Simulated assay, not measured.
Amino acid sequence: MSEQNVHLVCPHCQATNRVPMARLSATPNCGKCGQPLLTGNPHELNAQTVNKIIQKNEVLTIVDFWASWCQPCLMMAPQFKAAASQLPQVVFAKIQTDKYEQAAAPYNIRSLPTMVAFKHGKEVARQSGALPSDQIVQWVRSLRT
């Protein structure tokens, strides 16, 4: 039986890497730039990176759609970061919708903050409203089963 591989997009250089599933817990590095692929921190997306991160990552990817003027978004930011540190095999990313309106538009975000879970480029769930880190972790874990 052959080992299953997944594609992971490097949050540093955007190279797509093929990683054996068994190595996901071993903090794999990018084959191009040598940086960690799974950082345990949310990384900021922009108009050039949002689609690649969502479409090419084959692991669970949680994207926080937020805006700089949104107080609940700002309150949730440290909670989102804390949740990311507890789930290092999940990709956490953020996109600022007021800065990258066109990039966020295809995802039909109606309220902020909204977290959208993607796997293999497809939306698998979404959660609107600010949550504490333990509830974010619980929600993400419920998607992995």
Rank of each mutant, 00 (worst) to 15 (best):
R110G: 13
V9F: 08
P20S: 04
F65Y: 12
S2L: 10
E58D: 08
K52H: 15
K52L: 12
K122V: 07
P42T: 00
S25Y: 00
Q48D: 12
Q127E: 14
L112A: 01
G121K: 02
S128K: 00
P72C: 09
I95R: 02
A82D: 15
R126C: 05
A83C: 09
A82H: 08
C10D: 03
H12E: 04
L112I: 05
V9Q: 11
S2N: 08
Q71G: 12
G31S: 04
A125I: 04
L87E: 05
A77W: 02
S2R: 01
Q86V: 01
R110S: 10
V137P: 08
Q14H: 12
A22W: 01
L8V: 15
I54Q: 05
R126G: 07
Q89V: 02
T97A: 13
H43K: 00
Q48N: 10
V116R: 00
C33P: 10
Q55N: 15
P78S: 00
T61A: 10
W66T: 06
R23L: 11
M115W: 03
A105Q: 14
P88A: 05
L37K: 05
K94V: 02
F80T: 08
Q86E: 14
W69I: 02
K56Q: 15
N41R: 11
Q48C: 00
Q48Y: 12
L74G: 04
R18A: 15
I53G: 00
M21Y: 12
E44G: 09
Q71K: 10
C70L: 09
V116T: 12
C73Q: 02
K32A: 14
L131K: 12
K81Y: 05
A22C: 01
Q14C: 02
L8Y: 07
T49F: 07
T16F: 08
K32G: 07
C10H: 05
E58I: 03
K32W: 14
A103V: 10
S68W: 04
T39G: 03
Y100Q: 06
S85R: 06
D64E: 13
Q71H: 11
R110T: 13
Q48T: 11
H43Q: 06
